[in-house]
């Protein structure tokens, strides 16, 4: 995580997030795919504009964070801003039943539990 001297910038994270360290949308996790719904507007914060440019096609939150060189939490806060204004939408991953774990979904497990109780 050591940054080279050259990569440093006078921007501090607290300014980028406006002093927030939490408040990100809880549903956004590291692998959520986000898609830009609009093009970057001229007066935008540069990180927001960069996110919109990055997310023309669905991109994972971690990927955005890696490209921007910012921590995931910070990117989630920035993305939440954009989601709130409707410029970005998030696609939450749905875990499909796989062959190895066909009944891994909580619904199935709950049904099994109920059935066991009824025995």
């Amino acid at each position: 995580m050591t940054r080279s001297h050259r990569d440093e910038s006078p921007d501090r994270l607290h300014v980028i997030t406006g002093g927030r360290s939490s408040g990100a949308d809880g549903a956004l996790d590291a692998v959520t795919l986000v898609v830009a719904e609009s093009a970057p507007a001229p007066g935008m914060q540069s990180e927001h504009a960069a996110i919109l440019r990055l997310c023309r096609s669905p991109t994972a939150v971690v990927e955005v964070a890696a490209h921007l060189g910012l921590p995931v939490t910070v990117v989630r806060i920035l993305l939440t801003d954009l989601i709130d204004t409707g410029q970005v939408t998030a696609r939450h991953p749905v875990s499909a039943p796989s062959r190895t774990h066909p009944f891994a979904s909580p619904d199935v497990l709950e049904k099994v539990l109920v059935a066991l109780h009824n025995l």
């Binding site: 994270l13 360290s21 590291a30 921590p71 939490t73």
Partner: peptide, 17 residues
């Protein structure tokens, strides 16, 4: 900044961040 990068990646690190 390095610490923020370290702790900002996990979801549990929000308070530390």
């Amino acid at each position: 900044r390095a610490m923020q990068d370290d702790h900002g990646d996990g979801t549990a690190g929000a308070d530390v961040l």
